[in-house]
Amino acid sequence: MTPPVKSSTANILHDPYNLIITGVGGQGNVISSRMIGNMLAAKGFKVTIGETFGASQRGGSVMSHVRISSKAALSPQIPVHRAHMVVSLEPMETLRVLKDYGNQDICVICNTRPTHPIGVISGRLDYPSMAEMEERIKELSRRSWFFDATGMATRIGDPIFANIIMAGALAATGDLPLERSLFEKNLESKFPRAKVILNLKAFDQGYAMI
């Protein structure tokens, strides 16, 4: 059982802190945003997560808005150009998010493994090269980190761990108080020990990327 929210709060870099987790339907955005939200709600923050899922997201772009504040409940949509951090499970989706929510101070953690849209698979459209995308993301953000989280996750045993790797990386930025012990406690409420160990391995590998 997730521990109930306590009244004490640790530090968040901005109040409200606006985090966007983006990717492609099926990559596990929803799990990821809820896990991070639960960890912070358990610390006493007011958390609002806005997300779109359902049939419309089969293979489509998926975006979760995670908003953390010590003061008031916030709207489930971040106002345009007001995000602080983009955690992206797919490189092209990073650019899509930056276009609408980016600003001079935004930071980006980017999985470099592309998932090609149908238009690219069928040859109607071109997928930009990673070098081009990386260059553009760097121009459009204050700080950015790039690594192949899907590859790392596959080596741990399942590409879905890319989520956890990204969460570990986010924790390492120090923007939000996402301690490893809290993460472990959160996992233990849901998974058997063997799974917890794999998740922690993913978290640590992500943490090391920052």
């Binding site: 339907g25 089969r58 989706e93 849209p117």
Partner: peptide, 22 residues
């Protein structure tokens, strides 16, 4: 944020991600 470098993201075409069957 009106001065944000939106123009530069638009110069790199981002293909739309049409939804489809799994």
């Amino acid at each position: 944020n009106e001065g944000y470098r939106v123009g530069q993201t638009e110069s790199l075409p981002i293909p739309p991600r049409e939804i489809s069957f799994c």
